[in-house]
Design a protein around this nucleic acid. Structure first.
Lengths: 195, 195
DNA sequence: TTTATTCTTGAGCGACTGCTCAATAAGAGC
DNA sequence: GCTCTTATTGAGCAGTCGCTCAAGAATAAA
């Protein structure tokens, strides 16, 4: 009953998320984790059950934080479409050095996880779908505000944006060419406006 | 001096490639490899030096095979642009069930490998760059044949295609929606033609 | 303080990791 | 046949893996 002063669960998950994001699921050992979150194996397994379960919670944490950045971008720009573009530049270019990895953690998971971990796979799909829905919602606002043509299909455009976001982040890691990627982002949003 | 009848090196690398592509670098144990390529550890390490070195050769094998598919597609279609589109559909949609993974092996590597394996990272970048150059070459042919506008920049378009290819394959894995992805591919090539 | 409950600790289990190397087999040249 | 060189074998090393659990510390209730 008593809410005994325990470790700060959210903080621990956040720290675990950063480590997992950097090193991947297989690349992160439980010893790494113990050191990073400053907990002993017994406590970790009592609190989270398994490495996979902790990873799940880290994924959800990641997804929440990305959603917050997106929301903030739209609010800051005061325009749905400009907010989206700012979000893209922010995530793909500006944060690439400070983030644990240039690549989206959901994509890293999807590409690493094997079919014998259906839970993680399913969670990834769910979280990516939510991002796509957020994109669609913002695009819908952009239509309302007349920033893009009324006959545009926000759900198709959202899929398009999802593909771009995934592709661009990886392309950024391969090319190391900030200018070229900036140009590519510009052309993505130019073509949306032109529709 | 004598060319003693040894194992078939190319065949072994191909088999190793399929396993690595499926399970990733960290996810593939040397025991897995031993069984798959039917060699004992001593022979493997005598022939390839290390797991990482064998992985490098597997990556090059993968890249060669993808390049062959691209070349074949262009030859079959008798048109550079139609060949590219056929290649996209082939790789992103048609082969997704028979391939060891839906996702490009180079991208999987790039997303998994840590910075303490600079050799693999560098090789990935090199091989992806070559693919981009191949795209650019084919787009150049498309311009010559009048399939796309003369003022198009084949190198920029090639970067664009690279981003699409990467993004689409991952999106295919998340959405499992063949129709939507087919539509996305169509729109990619429609917009290239429209330029 | 005493007792009951919750939380934390860390030694260590059994399985697995990448890899080595002395022993053996299999050819090539004579 | 015989020697010399090269190829293959597989037991096993030293280290790491994810995880458990008996013991102890910390807090709450009485």
């Amino acid at each position: 009953m008593a809410n005994i002063a325990k470790f700060d669960r959210d903080d621990v998950i956040h720290k675990a998320m950063l480590l997992f994001w950097e090193k991947g699921f297989n690349g992160t050992s439980t010893r790494d984790l113990q050191q990073t979150i400053d907990m002993r194996p017994g406590s970790i397994y009592a609190a989270f059950g398994s490495k996979e379960q902790l990873y799940s919670e880290a994924l959800e944490c990641y997804s929440r934080e990305v959603a917050a950045i997106l929301e903030q971008s739209v609010a800051d720009e005061g325009s749905p479409l400009a907010g989206l573009e700012s979000f893209f530049r922010n995530v793909v270019i500006d944060r690439r050095d400070t983030n644990p990895s240039e690549i989206c953690m959901l994509v890293k998971t999807l590409s690493e996880v094997r079919n014998d971990q259906p839970g993680l796979m399913h969670l990834c799909r769910e979280l990516l779908k939510r991002t796509e829905c957020r994109f669609a919602g913002i695009l819908q606002q952009a239509i309302k505000k007349g920033e893009i043509a009324e006959h545009s299909d926000p759900r198709l455009l959202a899929k398009h944006l999802q593909v771009q976001m995934i592709g661009l982040r990886i392309y950024m890691k391969t090319s190391l060419n900030t200018e070229a990627v900036g140009e590519l982002i510009k052309s993505v949003f130019d073509s949306i406006k032109a529709h």
